[in-house]
Amino acid sequence: MGGHYPAPIAPTHTRIGWIGIGVMGGAMASRFISAGYSLSIYARTPSKATSLLSTGATLASSPAELAATSDVIFTMIGHPSDVRALVLDTLLPSLSPKTVIIDHTSSHPALARQIYDSALEKSCYSIDAPVSGGDLGARDGKLAIFAGGDAEVVQWLKPLFDILGKVNYMGSAGKGQSCKIANQIVVGGSLVGLSEGLVFGEKAGLDKDKFLEAVRGGAAGSMVMELFGKRMIGRDYRPGGFAEYMVKDLGMGVDLEEEVLVLPGAALSKQLFSGMVANGDGKFGTQGVITVIERMNGMGG
């Protein structure tokens, strides 16, 4: 027996499906296995699923097979176009009634609303739930989760969200995605500010480690500094989130079709992260934006 909504969620009968096992998605999915849940995954490249399969996950041969055998489905993929193709065109036609789909991808609010409406036509439910916290938050179950959709369904999902981090209910469908875009505007600006502070400090002859230690307890301190400061100093650009995805996220804020907003800081941040992509560093972590500031000042290497 499955555990479709509104049956109580429990490892003994709630079947979880997962699509998207990259840096973030793989770490998040593994936490459900550790918590004792039955996890089915789909991967376009099955060899990338080896680690999860070795710890107990099963491999579905197609998204349609995964949809037909899951009570709750999580997706964590790349771009809104990927979400449209996977969720609207592939998953939804294969869902059983009362299945819940949670999209963790940072995507467009209007697309989240469209998926929500299409799911209801199938007597299913959709929650847009992008996350913040990077690869460490995914690994440690300390993500901030921004959820949009039906409040009752989000509450029902709380035992699962609690495995991943802290869920914050933001309102109706699409509001989770709007919150993530606003989050990225703040994070992008913070990364640029931290990069410039470190570059200035180096030019001024400061010890960068001492600089971080000195300012972290004051007004300049932030979660961005805690997550990425040491990585920037050590030139560790391994991705928690790709720079090219930051360009996408900031673009959805700067170019949001439903609203006409002037966001000069976000527009500048988008240009700087776009510079990373132009330099061939789009697959670097977002902390790599410091390399753009360094290049502008004839530094780095």
Rank of each mutant, 00 (worst) to 15 (best):
Y5S: 04
P8G: 04
H13C: 06
V23T: 13
M24H: 03
A29E: 00
R31H: 00
L39G: 00
S40A: 10
Y42C: 06
A43C: 07
T50D: 14
S51M: 05
L52E: 01
S61V: 07
E65K: 12
A67W: 11
T69D: 08
V72T: 04
F74H: 01
G78H: 06
H79R: 11
H79N: 13
S81C: 06
S81P: 07
S81G: 07
R84M: 07
L86W: 03
V87G: 06
D89V: 01
P93C: 11
S94M: 04
S96Q: 13
P97G: 12
V100W: 03
S106G: 11
S107D: 08
A112S: 15
A112M: 10
Q114D: 12
D117P: 02
A119Y: 11
S126H: 13
S126G: 13
P130Q: 10
S132N: 09
G134E: 12
L143H: 06
A144P: 05
D150R: 15
K158R: 15
L160K: 00
L160Y: 00
V167C: 12
V167L: 10
G174A: 04
G174K: 01
G176S: 09
C179L: 08
I181D: 01
A182V: 15
A182G: 13
V186L: 14
G189K: 11
V192I: 15
V192L: 13
L198N: 08
L198T: 05
G205F: 09
K208D: 09
A214R: 07
S222F: 12
S222T: 12
M223H: 10
I233F: 04
Y237T: 07
F242G: 04
F242A: 14
V247G: 00
D249C: 06
D249L: 05
L250H: 03
G253F: 02
D255V: 03
D255C: 07
E257P: 13
P264A: 01
A266C: 04
A267L: 10
S269R: 03
K270Y: 01
Q271M: 03
L272F: 06
L272P: 04
M276Y: 00
K283I: 05
F284N: 11
F284Y: 14
E294Q: 15
N297M: 13
